[in-house]
Computed example of a mutant assay.
Amino acid sequence: MEKTWRWFGKNDRITLTMLRQIGVEGIVTALHQVSNGEVWNLDAIKDMKAYIESFGLRWSVVESLPVSEAIKYAGPERDALIENYKLSLINLGRAGVKTVCYNFMPVIDWIRTDLERPWADGTSSLYFDKIRFAYFDCHILKRSGAEADYTDEELSKVNELAVVMTQEEKDELVDTIIVKTQGFVNGNIKEGDQNPVAIFNRLLSLYQSIDRNGLRENLRYFLSAIMPVCEEWNINMCIHPDDPPFQVLGLPRIVTSADDIDWILHAVDNLHNGLTFCAGSLSAGLHNDVPALARRFAKRTHFVHLRSTNVTPEGNFIEASHLEGRAHLVELVRIFEKECSTVPMRVDHGRLMLDDADKGYNPGYSFHGRMLALAQVEGMMAVAKDELRS
């Protein structure tokens, strides 16, 4: 596997010089300055690629070229946005950037309720608390019909929480779920937007008539449209699993399990239609056997995210050490080193540790935490390669 790192462009406080020193080989990035739906200009792509290469690295993966919401819910501007997407893919192909990670999650990308859940050793990591999320859903968004998505026991705990929640805690929950974990990912909502709850509810309303089958068909439509471009320019599209891999906020989620992945890969059965194997996202669902998924879909995996989670029976989960948790990363490394040794891999969502806390890094994307994770995974890779040689 190629050791890559998600880097947020020239303004990222983590520099390419730093990454070269810690053994990174490839960069995972995007043209973050380009608004969703606009065409990625060839000159801008070439400039980013040349900048990365000037540090002895390569632009391995685009993460991501965002799929606009209107493509997902089939708005009237869908076809025009897909044409723009195809033009961006053509320009990436011309520049020699051949792997694109994307997601098809409506409205909201990855979801956490706590960005700095403390561990006993003084580090912290991302955390999902189902009851706090249900409180956000029922009492802050006040989504119609939300109560039907939770058990009576869960709603009782939500009501108990409502009695003690302070305004500061409510504001922090909104900032965590809607703003901080979304703005740098998909651009739907960004820092400084006024009344993010109203914006968020407006986005949710766009999907009122879209069920699971409808969203699947919209994904099929999108993939069918772009695959000829991917064939011509040898571009691998790799869809990211839903995070977490279950239904939320009344929205359909269609990349949650083996059956979902199998449906997508056969909906447009083209080798350029592939998977981002995100071990962390998949491991957050108790229904998923992550190593079994890796063995089943390794040949259609174009990009790997290595992280792990610990999950409680109640549905809460925390980002675990890369040496622990449900993802079983040691076994995953063995599988991917054997089945697809040239696949780009990045460690994902490191802990907040040492002096990371005051650097203003994007949530989950600390320097020292990911550097530790990279060292741990690099050790796994060395063992797996040695086993394959013996």
Rank of each mutant, 00 (worst) to 15 (best):
R6P: 12
F8K: 04
D12Q: 01
L16T: 12
M18Q: 00
G23M: 00
V24C: 08
V24L: 09
T29C: 11
A30Q: 11
N36Y: 11
G37M: 11
D43F: 15
A44W: 15
A44T: 01
A50T: 06
F55Q: 07
V62N: 12
E63T: 04
S64G: 03
A74W: 01
P76T: 07
D79K: 10
L89P: 02
I90W: 11
R94Y: 15
T99S: 07
V100P: 11
Y102A: 01
I111P: 05
D121V: 02
T123Y: 03
S124F: 00
F128H: 03
D129Q: 04
Y135H: 08
C138W: 07
E147C: 12
K157L: 07
K157S: 08
N159L: 14
V163N: 11
V163K: 15
E172V: 06
K180L: 04
K180H: 13
P196S: 05
P196C: 10
R202E: 08
R202Y: 11
N218W: 01
A225K: 07
I226K: 04
I226P: 00
E232K: 10
N236H: 03
H240M: 00
P241K: 05
D243V: 07
P245W: 04
I254T: 03
D269R: 11
L271F: 13
H272K: 10
L275M: 12
T276C: 13
A279L: 03
N288F: 14
L293P: 13
T312E: 11
R334I: 14
T342S: 15
P344D: 02
V347A: 00
D358H: 02
S366R: 10
F367H: 10
E387M: 02
L388D: 05
